[in-house]
Design a protein around this nucleic acid. Structure first.
Lengths: 191, 191
DNA sequence: GGTGTAGGCCTACAGTTGTTGGCATGACCG
DNA sequence: CGGTCATGCCAACAACTGTAGGCCTACACC
């Protein structure tokens, strides 16, 4: 996530934001290729050339759309028993509050830049989070990777593939089922 | 998976197969949009128009490429303790033996037809498999969905996103870590 | 109140895409 | 040996894409 420079607000800020929001919505719904600049501009209610002026190219627009943080909860502030449910609920909330996370997931399947961004998020936000409760760095790395398989698998099946069995379950049910799994990845040992 | 009709072998069968193999390779590597008919034809060493002649359209070619089975092992023939490792190893093997599974996963992120095919596979191959060891049909459905979150999450992070921490682990390590997880989804209860 | 400039639109272009039809060629069967 | 049909290639088309440049308008500031 880029830190905002202390630059005076411009009149075009609303348009910039509208473009970014529209881009995330189209990317999340259609993926990179089908989300054309014309479609994004139409959704934002402006001319396609504005997208180019403000973001330079479609690739750079994608980079801007994928530039966000996971806002993960601080595990050290939670009781160990609460951590796993908090993680599941946080992910579901993140996916449902806006399209950014789903856009990243969908686009990462075909665009290397987005895949790289997903790797960056795991390495720089999930791994450090695990490191707060797992001293061994190599093990923390493994735990983070394993956590990612389950978390991203949940997001994929529920919001991208929309497997009926996964969509049908409530956030509470999913948290209840997955809590022991995450517990195992956070503090357990392989068989 | 379509059953092969008993039709006499044609001289063009090799070309048909070459197109299908090339399509799977390109779909797996580039996704649907970037895998152009021209690129697929070039990889198969034939003219783009042949693809149209034999498969009718790009959409139908995708349908043919996604038409395969998971060849899941029969769980009733395995001791309960062996089932989970067998499932993990089978998935990894399926992904590494050819590109079909990865192609489906990558394309399903953007193409509704492929997503629908993935739902079909879960409903018609994973659910029945679980049903052989779980009598309650609704619970079997849930277990199948949960299994899918972990299995597809593994395939996604390892072969599509290529998270370093997941790529670095061996099949044995992954099986050892995930075995208790799958066991939980197969026979356990939510918290 | 004039004027510079930021914000916006329209048009155009070159490249690529899926798709089509026609033409060659060689195998196979009578 | 003649013809017929499957197999393959080539050329083309219409649509759509990202992108660039030019032009108009209206706000902000001196």
């Amino acid at each position: 996530m880029t830190v905002d420079q202390d630059v005076p607000p411009r009149r075009s800020d609303r348009t910039r934001a509208a473009i970014l929001a529209a881009a995330r919505e189209r990317f999340a719904a259609d993926g990179y290729a089908k989300a054309t600049i014309r479609a994004i501009a139409a959704q934002a209610g402006i001319d396609p050339s504005m997208v180019m002026r403000y973001y330079g190219s479609k690739e750079k627009l994608l980079a801007a759309a994928a530039d966000f943080g996971l806002e993960l909860p601080d595990l050290t502030l939670l009781a160990p028993a609460e951590r796993t449910v908090a993680l599941v609920r946080h992910l579901l909330d993140l996916c449902e509050r806006n399209d950014t996370m789903i856009a990243l997931l969908r686009v990462a399947a075909t665009q290397e830049a987005a895949a790289e961004r997903s790797r960056f998020l795991v390495a720089n936000q999930i791994e450090p989070l695990i490191a707060t409760i797992e001293p061994d760095p190599e093990l923390a790395r493994q735990r983070a990777g394993l956590l990612a398989t389950q978390m991203l698998g949940l997001a994929l099946t529920r919001y991208v593939l929309e497997l009926p069995a996964v969509v049908a379950m409530s956030a509470d049910e999913l948290a209840a089922w997955m809590s022991p799994v995450l517990q195992h990845y956070l503090t357990g040992r392989p068989d």
